[in-house]
């Protein structure tokens, strides 16, 4: 990797007006960045733009050459109850699971931030749900929710609750949310924990002297201080869970009916059945939701910073 740049070399980093030094630096930067840029152009930027183009086309590679159809795909979406239901559940899934992940994340992080000696074992098991494949988690939970042999069903039956987790649409949606919350709360908790550790101890001491109780110091000190972090993590989780396809795919295949189908699952289904134009149009809807989340995040950020 040592290039043929002949020594003695002057101070390359100095902000000198000499162009050759800067040029050398730019060349190094270009070479170092080239692989990442090429990868991202090839697998992200081009596909992004091409998806938008294809969303205005009727395109199935098995049959005709693609034809421009304007907004026809989007009109089709407006009349497609499966996709419309998927949009609805996507929003429920993304916002619902993020909310509970943040909620439980704060609880778990506070627990891990306890002054007591925490067994290392607890920190380790906290990471395990995050670290296992979603496929394994989804298959395992699917079986625990099974109407005949499932442990959860059996345990609830013993206390008098009869829930048909995977055959009742509303319950199936709850089941999917439970798995998503179980799987990603640890990741959220670890991130929040880092924020909690940054809150200066003196603030709590001062609040205590002033007679604040635990809840008051949590609402008055901890929460405002970690709010910007919560917004960041929340944004990240919203965007990330919009892309979750493996959970409904593995656990319910979008069922019963299409109750637990999300947009990501619909796109995958349309891609596999070579419905490329329609898949692209649904993808564009997903881009729009990303934009919506981004706008919400910026608004939340402004609010958090003003209130501080």
């Amino acid at each position: 990797m040592v290039a043929n740049v002949s020594p003695p070399q002057a101070v390359t980093r100095a902000r000198s007006p000499q162009l050759t030094l800067n040029q050398r630096r730019y060349l190094a930067a270009a070479l170092l960045l080239a692989p990442v840029i090429l990868l991202r152009l090839f697998t992200t930027l081009y596909p992004f733009l091409q998806t938008i183009v294809l969303s205005f086309h009727e395109y199935n590679p098995a049959f005709t050459p693609r034809t421009y159809v304007g907004l026809e795909n989007f009109e089709k979406i407006a009349a497609d109850i499966v996709v419309k239901s998927s949009i609805e559940f996507t929003l429920i899934f993304v916002f619902g699971s993020t909310f509970f992940q943040l909620f439980f994340g704060v609880m778990v992080a506070s627990l891990l931030n306890s002054r007591l000696r925490i067994p290392n074992f607890i920190r380790t098991i906290n990471l395990i749900p995050w670290a296992i494949p979603m496929v394994v988690a989804a298959v395992g939970w699917r079986w625990m929710f099974d109407g005949n042999y499932g442990w959860i069903v059996d345990l609830l039956r013993r206390i008098g609750l009869q829930i048909n987790w995977l055959t009742d649409p509303a319950s199936a949606r709850v089941a999917i949310l439970i798995v998503a919350i179980w799987k990603s709360t640890p990741f959220v908790a670890v991130s929040i924990l880092a924020g909690l550790q940054g809150v200066p101890e003196e603030l709590y001491e001062a609040a205590k002297v002033d007679g604040a109780n635990a809840w008051q110091s949590f609402w008055g000190i901890t929460l405002p201080l970690i709010m910007p972090l919560m917004v960041t993590i929340g944004m990240f989780m919203l965007v990330w869970q919009l892309a979750v396809f493996d959970l409904p795919y593995t656990m319910t295949a979008g069922g019963p009916g299409f109750a637990t189908s999300v947009l990501a699952y619909q796109v995958q289904q349309k891609v596999v059945t070579l419905n490329y134009g329609y898949a692209s149009a649904i993808s564009v809807i997903m881009f729009l939701i990303v934009g919506l989340i981004g706008a919400l995040g910026l608004a939340a950020f402004r609010r958090v910073q003003v209130s501080m």
């Binding site: 991202r40 596909p47 091409q50 892309a243 796109v267 891609v271 649904i282 997903m286 990303v290």
Partner: peptide
């Protein structure tokens, strides 16, 4: 700008870029 572009590209759902990648 390059850095910002990279970070923003995280937000694009993986599955939503599948059609062109499949063609390639």
């Amino acid at each position: 700008l390059v850095f910002l572009g990279l970070i923003l590209s995280i937000a694009l759902p993986q599955v939503a870029l599948l059609v062109p990648i499949r063609e390639i």
